[in-house]
Design a protein around this nucleic acid. Sequence first.
DNA 1: TCTGGGGTCCTAGGACCC
DNA 2: TCTGGGGTCCTAGGACCC
Length: 424
Amino acid sequence: MPSTMYALVDCNNFYVSCERVFDPKLCNRPVIVLSNNDGCAVARSNEAKQLGIAMGIPAFQIRDLIRKHNIAVLSSNFALYGDFSNRVMSIIMQSMPEVEIYSIDEAFIDLGSLHSFDIYQMCVDLVRKIETCTGIPVSIGIAPTKTLAKVANHIAKRHGIVERVYYFNSAQQIMQKLANFKVRDVWGIGRQLEKKLLGMGIYTAADLIALPDTTLKHAFNIVMQRTVMELQGIACIELQDDMINKKQIMVSRSFGKRVTELVDLQEAIATYASRACEKLRGQGSVCGGFFVFIHTGLHGSSDTVYHNSIYIKLPSPSADTRTILHLAKHGLAKIFRPGYRYQKVGIILSDFAQAEQLQIDLFAHDNLEHSETLMHTLDEINYKLGKHALQFGAAGLNNSWKMQPGNRSRGYTYCWDELLVAKL
DNA sequence: TCTGGGGTCCTAGGACCC
DNA sequence: TCTGGGGTCCTAGGACCC
């Protein structure tokens, strides 16, 4: 029995499952959820997957398929999904000792301390509890390493396992499954590495772990070596159980329609900079600098495609929206070129430090204490009265550039005016 | 015509220092 | 006049993840 043991809880077709909770008409029929701006499919129900709809496929390419099979098409409703995610994660954390929230719909559990318990049964119970309490179906993979837990989860989802839990508890069983597991489906192997591996005649996870050590070290970097060790059952990737502050914060959106005027781009960047600063203050950080970037559509000829970015260093680290907003607008003006049809702008805050450890700049013009109080008040008001209760004038009011979702579901769990009404 | 919005880690190469 | 080599730090870019 290996000394390490991990479980991966993964919500099935998460966004679609969230939509189905409040709209049962969506059950047992193909459903897809589109990305922001209704660009491409980012979640598919099993029925939609069976029709061959690939992850990330642009919506316009499947228009005929949608009509032919009467597929339900929804715009994404991230506020709703975030809410469901919190519910699912809190149940996992109540039930298990050490949990890492890995993404909006996945969590790793360290089962190392539970050897004396029936961990398989615990996971079966957890699957039932999550579905009963939230309506979201989940699957769980259990294995000695995180990478193998990913594989086990894959099996739990796809092989008609009623309990939706798959447990790797012997080396022979692992080897047998890895022999049929495509190398592309291994956690950490993307498109580029797949291409290289296929070129070397490596098709399955079993082929990969059979690779001689010298070849592995010669042809790949340390990340791949770690992946191989994990597949061999040697745990190299630990649980990250405390919430680590982000090292950079990006806010960016595609426009609802192409934008040509600097004024509109500046409104957008002001909106995104404000949001980014809120997130920054939310984790108690200040930033030392940031990037502003801009680009047209990516698919076009060289005279219609333009992309550029600029780094702006702050005179002293800050989380004051006013400072960052002002500099971001200037930065944007520097990289703006007239005559292009822009698709997107964005801001990436970086070079973080903790606010309380901030060295005070003797020559700073901002009154630090005043700035902190003002920003704190701003955040409080927006928290209490809703996100956009108080905003900066630079962000504009008309926002003709904003995206317009075509078919977003209601704010079932977070908006008083959109709650479901029960009929007596 | 129409193709998301976030993040992380690693590496190679240049700058700089002694 | 001759002009080394190793270490560290930073950055851009590439790969991956969901």
